[in-house]
Computed example of a mutant assay.
Amino acid sequence: MSKHIYLISGMGADERMFRHLRFPDEYTVHYLPWLDPQPNEPYADYAARMARGITAEGEITLLGLSFGGMLSLEIAKQRPIAKNILISTIKHTRERPAYFNWVRRLKLNHLPDQLIFGKRYLIVKHYMGPQTPEAAQLLREYLKKQDQHYMRWAINVVINWENEFIPNHLVHIQGDSDLTFPLKTIQPTHVIKGGTHCMIMNQSAEINRILSGEL
């Protein structure tokens, strides 16, 4: 049976986040691009539309980064998936960081566009933790091109996401220095020392060693 792995990037990002990952030769690698959300579209419906992009036949593995990890679990609720690989994310409601509650209570996700999408590079950089010039440059590019409609939808989904479904074949790789999704609320299968939210680019060699053993 042929083996396929579909990559789902983080919020507002693209396939460049995976440029340093390496996969076994028997896998065909695909990238699943984000779609524009429809008005008031439920996350399950959005996941169903994204899942239609999985057209390969054979054994399907999903690798989701950050917001893409959450989406991979929503897709796994709807169709057979051989394995879910999560990087720098959370997998169920109990792993949500405490600051999510403050965002909801204070309705910070409903602030005007200028406050949310204005000069935010330093704040985003703090939480992402890029440790190489390449990662920092990518972050700047993503912030410049982000679609505010998509970003508002995505932020609301993340802040309010609730999930108790955990698939049987799951690999969860988390950094112990991730400020976006702190390790203290998460129980991953693998922990990378010094790993930030941007460790997929900063510490790809360690992630690749894990992937080689899990795939």
Rank of each mutant, 00 (worst) to 15 (best):
I192L: 12
I60W: 04
D25N: 13
G68S: 07
L32N: 09
M1Y: 03
T55K: 15
R96L: 11
A98P: 03
F117N: 05
R152V: 08
I75M: 11
Q203I: 11
L111W: 05
H92Q: 05
T93H: 02
W161Q: 01
G194S: 11
D176C: 02
I54A: 03
V103H: 01
H20M: 12
Q131N: 13
R209F: 05
I54Q: 07
N208L: 13
L21S: 06
Q203T: 09
L71H: 14
V191P: 01
L115S: 09
K91R: 12
I192A: 02
S204W: 12
E26Y: 06
N208F: 11
N156G: 11
W102N: 10
K107T: 06
M199P: 00
Q78I: 12
E214R: 06
Y46C: 05
K77Y: 12
M199K: 03
L86R: 04
T55Y: 11
N208Y: 10
E41A: 05
K184P: 00
M50Y: 04
E134K: 03
G129A: 10
K83R: 15
Q146D: 13
N101M: 06
D25E: 15
P42N: 10
M151V: 13
K193A: 15
M50H: 09
Q203G: 03
N160H: 11
E15C: 07
A136M: 11
Y31F: 14
K144D: 11
G175W: 11
K3T: 09
Y43T: 07
Y99G: 04
Q78W: 11
E162S: 08
G12L: 13
L179I: 06
L211K: 12
R19Y: 13
L35R: 10
S212A: 14
E134D: 14
D36I: 14
E57P: 00
W34C: 07
S88R: 03
W153N: 00
G64R: 00
H92M: 07
R209M: 07
Y142L: 08
L143P: 08
I8K: 02
M151I: 13
N202V: 08
H92V: 05
L211N: 03
L183V: 02
S72G: 07
P80C: 07
L32W: 09
Y43I: 10
M1I: 08
I186F: 02
A56L: 03
P80D: 10
L71I: 12
G12E: 05
I123Q: 12
F181N: 03
P24T: 13
A135G: 03
H169D: 15
D178W: 06
R209S: 11
E206N: 08
M1P: 07
G213M: 10
T28C: 10
R19W: 12
I186G: 00
N109D: 01
A76W: 07
D14I: 13
T132E: 14
E41V: 05
L62P: 01
M201C: 08
R96P: 05
G194E: 11
A48H: 02
A76D: 05
I123Y: 03
L35E: 13
Q131I: 04
F23Y: 15
Y121V: 04
S72T: 09
G10D: 01
I159N: 04
P97G: 04
L7E: 08
L170H: 06
P42V: 06
R49P: 02
R52M: 15
K184E: 15
H149K: 08
